[in-house]
Design a protein around this nucleic acid. Structure first.
Lengths: 224, 224
DNA sequence: ATTATCTATAGATCTATAGATAATGC
DNA sequence: ATTATCTATAGATCTATAGATAATGC
């Protein structure tokens, strides 16, 4: 345990101690998993980052996968809930004629804001999610936590594009989420590719463009 | 070694033996890495899948990372080269007025065709690349092998959109590659989300839509 | 008295190397 | 004679458990 961590722990109630330890563990695991994935991180790595002994992780979590899934679940409800609210508010405001762009703004901007304004920890979670999302095992976690919001978005898109076959709507969503996940991943590739013109962590720049870009894409599928 | 593998090996020259073993190893590694990533695969997993002893992997490769990078590089040149040719041909054909959609067709369709028509092994490579692409370490491999084609695409896009700032071009590309990688990853998520309406491995369905979709997106950035 | 944390350690597995054996090559 | 493959094994590391210690809680 680092001196700082010990000092902080001293005077707390057990409930506070527990909550604080859990949070530190989850933050450390989130960061490491976002960088190296489930198998690229050892429990020792996590423990060292927190400044505790590896065995304490087994006190709080059943095993590594349990830790991993807890990291995923911790913030999933927050982002999912916020976007659900935003979509419902948009639906109410738009009345009988919702637009694709309006729905996408509610879905995408709400998320990008949350990560960008939430600071480093939320940005780590975003990268963690992006990494999980394009693995076969990880995609199942996405199903569990995000299907409701996504299906809500889809339902509005269907009302905005009443003559579209479901196939077009779902492929369109597939493109949208690919672009979003590529953003959340912040690999630094766009920075290097563009010679510094774009920065991976410039979510406002993405927010400024993504909904409009994708909405136009959906509309172009009409005559496909 | 499986009986089949041994029988096949019997009568070959050493060069053939070497080439065949290397190919079997790379195919097995490609499949496993695409499913579980660099750290989720052990050399033993690869050896078992091929039917050889783990130590033979060290005869052919320096270490696990060397094997991983060789898997990446083996097919990268093929896809990169094919797309480069397609882009150059399009550029010649389009003359003074290339379009965004034309350039994207050359870039995207060529790639999707290669994987889809190349059979299971090429599909595995696609998933492998997609997985690599949204990790921080992996993105550097993308730089090395794919920067030239991507910059070629970007140069045509700039000519198609002469009044666009570079920033818009690069963010647009960022969205395109996100959608493409989400396709190549074939996680099965869109299958479950759409209740079977879309299938992850239906690259023709993606090919039918993606260039048109993304081209409209680029054009919509004009008044951003 | 209960809970958080640490010590000690077992058992499994993983990477990598050294050296032996069994094929092909002249 | 050279190259492909296997045997044997060292050393490191990883997960997980049992049991001890040090805090908080009544």
């Amino acid at each position: 345990m680092s001196d700082g961590a010990r000092a902080k722990r001293g005077r707390r109630t057990k409930a506070e101690q527990r909550a604080e330890s859990l949070e530190q563990i989850l933050d450390a695991a989130e960061y490491l998993f976002s960088k190296h994935g489930l198998y690229g991180v050892t429990l020792r790595d996590v423990a060292q980052r927190v400044g505790i002994h590896t065995t304490l992780l087994h006190y709080y979590f059943k095993d590594k996968k349990d830790l991993f899934e807890t990291v995923f679940a911790r913030r999933a409800g927050v982002t999912s809930g916020r976007r659900m609210v935003a979509l419902e508010q948009y639906e109410t405001a738009a009345g009988a004629h919702p637009t694709v762009e309006g729905a996408l703004h509610a879905f995408l901007d709400t998320d990008l804001d949350l990560y960008f304004e939430g600071g480093e920890l939320w940005m780590n979670y975003a990268a963690f999610c992006a990494r999980v999302s394009n693995t076969p095992e990880g995609a199942v976690l996405m199903d569990v936590h995000f299907d409701p919001v996504v299906l809500k978005l889809v339902s509005i898109l269907k009302r905005a594009l009443p003559d579209y076959p479901d196939e077009d709507i779902f492929w369109g969503y597939h493109f949208v989420t690919g672009a979003l996940m590529n953003t959340l991943a912040r690999t630094g590739r766009i920075d290097r590719l563009s010679g510094g013109v774009c920065r991976s962590d410039d979510f406002p720049a993405v927010k400024k463009r993504i909904a409009k870009f994708m909405a136009a894409g959906f509309l172009a599928l009409k005559d496909a």
